Simulated assay, not measured.
Amino acid sequence: MSGPLRLVIFDVDGTLVDSQGDILAAMAAGFATVGAPMPAREAVLGIVGLSLDVAVARLAPHLPGPARAAIVEGYKAAYMALRAEQGVAASSPLYPGARETLDALHGVPEIVLGVATGKSARGLAKLIEGHALERYFVTRQVADHHPSKPHPSMLRAALDETGIAPEHAVMVGDTSYDMEMARAAGIAGIGVTWGYHRPEALGAAARLADDFGALAALLAEDWGAWA
């Protein structure tokens, strides 16, 4: 492969790792702190990718601000406890083919990798450490420093940090928020169908991939094969 630098930005939950078990359990614990039942599973998974305060506001618009704030704190405490109890690799396992694809892409000198996630900086750091992914991501955009997805701030920051033009970048994610964010930033979006939003919700995606092998094939088709 030769040519300009290319940037592949990955979402995390529902794209690289399957953390739905801990997300659902932590959300149930968060709602329990205010004596309220957790919304339906589909509703909870539907907000994955949003910043936590925005996600809770969408799930519980009927609750007052202090109750929503308590849910957020309860969620954080429960999520950290679950992760500590099980370990990152067990609580948020990588999807099949994720590491192999990251290895292949990382091995191409012209390809730069990044992440854009609704996780906090601390949460992302723990996940990266738990899976020994420290060497892969040149740019890491987190909820602490940006408006919630689908605002394009995360992607604009990733482009600025790497100096790569939007036409040479791609956003890979499983939610409508990822694809809408990509479109707003002028970046092509590849929607993955193994995550938390149904494929029909990914209408802003340029293309869809059903597994990591298909994702790698799409990138190779666009940018040339790699060893």
Rank of each mutant, 00 (worst) to 15 (best):
M1N: 08
L5D: 08
L5V: 11
R6Y: 01
V8F: 03
V12K: 06
L16Q: 10
L16C: 14
L16G: 14
V17A: 14
S19F: 06
Q20W: 14
D22F: 09
D22H: 07
D22W: 03
I23N: 02
M27A: 07
F31P: 04
A32D: 10
M38Y: 06
P39K: 09
A40S: 12
E42T: 15
L45C: 11
G46T: 11
V48Q: 02
L50M: 13
S51P: 06
L52Y: 05
D53N: 12
V54E: 13
L59A: 01
A60Y: 04
P61V: 14
P61E: 10
P61A: 11
H62E: 15
V72C: 09
E73G: 11
G74I: 02
A77S: 09
A77P: 04
M80E: 11
L82V: 04
L82T: 05
A84S: 15
Q86A: 15
G87K: 07
S91I: 05
S92R: 12
S92T: 14
L94M: 15
L94T: 09
Y95H: 14
P96G: 12
R99M: 15
L102W: 12
D103C: 11
A104D: 09
H106G: 13
V112P: 06
L113M: 11
G114N: 06
A116D: 00
T117V: 08
G118K: 05
K119P: 00
K119V: 03
A121M: 07
G123P: 07
L124F: 08
L127F: 10
L127Q: 08
G130D: 13
H131R: 12
A132H: 14
L133P: 07
E134F: 08
V138E: 11
V138Y: 07
Q141F: 02
Q141E: 08
Q141H: 02
H145E: 15
H146P: 00
H146G: 03
H146R: 02
S153T: 06
S153R: 06
R156D: 04
R156T: 03
R156I: 10
A157M: 11
A158G: 02
D160N: 02
E161M: 00
G163L: 05
G163P: 04
I164M: 06
A165W: 08
H168W: 05
A169V: 02
V170N: 00
S176V: 13
D178F: 08
A182L: 04
A182M: 03
A184G: 02
A185F: 00
G189K: 01
G189A: 01
G189H: 01
T193K: 01
T193L: 02
R198G: 12
R198H: 15
A201K: 09
L202K: 00
L202V: 02
A204E: 06
A206T: 07
A206R: 05
R207G: 05
L208C: 02
A209P: 00
D211Y: 10
D211N: 15
G213E: 13
A214G: 04
L215P: 00
A216P: 05
A217M: 10
A217I: 11
A220N: 06
D222P: 03
W223V: 03
